[in-house]
Amino acid sequence: MSKKRKGFIPVMLTPFKEDGAVDYNGLTRLTELYLNAGAAGLFANCLSSEMFEMNEEERLAVTKHVVDVVKGTVPVVATATFGGNIREQADFVKRMYDTGIEAAIVITNMLATEIEMNDVFEERVYRLLEHTDDIPLGFYECPDPFKRILPAGQLRNFVDTGRVIYHKDTCLDIDLVKAKLESTRHMPRFGLYDAYMVHAVESLKAGSAGLSCIQGNYFPELVVWLCNHYDDPTQQDQVSRVQQFFIDHMDVMHDVYPVVAKYFLQKRGLAISTFTRRFMGVFDQEVKTKMDILAGAYETLYQDINIQLAV
């Protein structure tokens, strides 16, 4: 997950059929969409993928399918810790790594409870490292069932082991992001990918390796464009406009997600169902209307800045 070139790492959706089964043909089409849009890597089996609604074998099968479609063109990472004792979690890390991923991702809330202190969490991380051979790992500050945010110093300690190469940051605090970046700057193999698009440009300028956000499940080309042009002195008016677009439309993209993202991709021509196993609210006509308005705003934007759509 090199940070030499800024990149977009999609938090992948999982297409399902109307009967709830995984739609592997749809997953192929979705993976190809991300690649055609210019994604620098893929984060399979994450919260957007409805990982908590899949069993172990489905998590492995979905990840392996993505790896097979990608064929080594970009790195793939995938969540590999879902609770239980350290040995159990370590065993699944090994099984997930065997699918061909670049790094197995540790959910920060799965190694210690919400009331347990950071020293308990840290001790368990080191135990997990001990039981997972030399497998490259990453961290994911997943907001469900609660969000455990890593302090900058603690992240540095983990990165200094040489085993941690990836971090999906969800702290929403640009000052903390900058502190994490400064504390890990000496490790070229490590990359921090920011999830919060409100400060996307500032994060990229501060040194983040790229962006890993749900907005990429609506318009991945736009996130890629921002990673490519955030510091282009000839494009700063357009960069400011794109950054403001993400800020202005933040709330609507989170409402009834991920159903709304699947609906939006349908409107773009991707043949997938809006079915989700995870209930996040009612997808009614009011929500559809908001998505239609968002689609119109995006069409105007991508035409004005001359972005080529992947679908």
Score class of each variant (00 low, 15 high):
162 G>H: 10
162 G>W: 14
164 V>M: 03
165 I>E: 01
165 I>N: 05
168 K>G: 04
169 D>C: 14
172 L>S: 14
172 L>C: 15
172 L>F: 13
173 D>A: 09
173 D>F: 07
174 I>Q: 02
175 D>P: 05
175 D>F: 13
175 D>C: 07
176 L>Y: 07
176 L>I: 06
176 L>K: 07
177 V>T: 10
178 K>M: 06
179 A>M: 09
180 K>D: 01
181 L>Q: 10
182 E>P: 07
182 E>T: 12
183 S>W: 05
187 M>I: 09
188 P>Y: 11
188 P>M: 13
189 R>Y: 12
191 G>Q: 09
194 D>Y: 04
195 A>E: 08
197 M>T: 13
198 V>S: 15
198 V>Y: 13
199 H>L: 09
199 H>G: 11
199 H>D: 14
200 A>F: 04
201 V>M: 07
201 V>S: 05
203 S>M: 07
204 L>P: 00
204 L>S: 03
205 K>V: 09
205 K>Y: 12
205 K>A: 15
206 A>T: 12
209 A>R: 00
209 A>M: 01
210 G>P: 00
210 G>T: 00
212 S>I: 01
212 S>P: 00
214 I>F: 06
215 Q>V: 08
215 Q>M: 10
215 Q>P: 01
215 Q>F: 11
216 G>D: 04
216 G>E: 03
217 N>T: 01
217 N>I: 02
219 F>R: 10
220 P>N: 12
220 P>A: 14
223 V>W: 00
223 V>Y: 00
223 V>Q: 00
225 W>F: 05
225 W>N: 04
226 L>G: 01
227 C>V: 05
227 C>S: 03
229 H>G: 05
230 Y>D: 05
231 D>G: 00
233 P>A: 06
234 T>D: 14
235 Q>V: 09
237 D>Q: 15
238 Q>K: 15
238 Q>I: 08
239 V>S: 04
239 V>H: 01
239 V>T: 04
240 S>K: 14
242 V>Q: 01
246 F>I: 02
247 I>K: 13
247 I>Y: 10
247 I>W: 06
248 D>I: 07
248 D>N: 13
249 H>P: 02
249 H>R: 14
251 D>E: 15
251 D>L: 10
252 V>S: 04
252 V>Q: 07
253 M>K: 13
254 H>W: 11
254 H>G: 12
255 D>W: 11
256 V>A: 11
257 Y>H: 15
258 P>W: 11
259 V>N: 13
260 V>D: 10
260 V>T: 15
261 A>I: 08
262 K>Y: 08
263 Y>V: 02
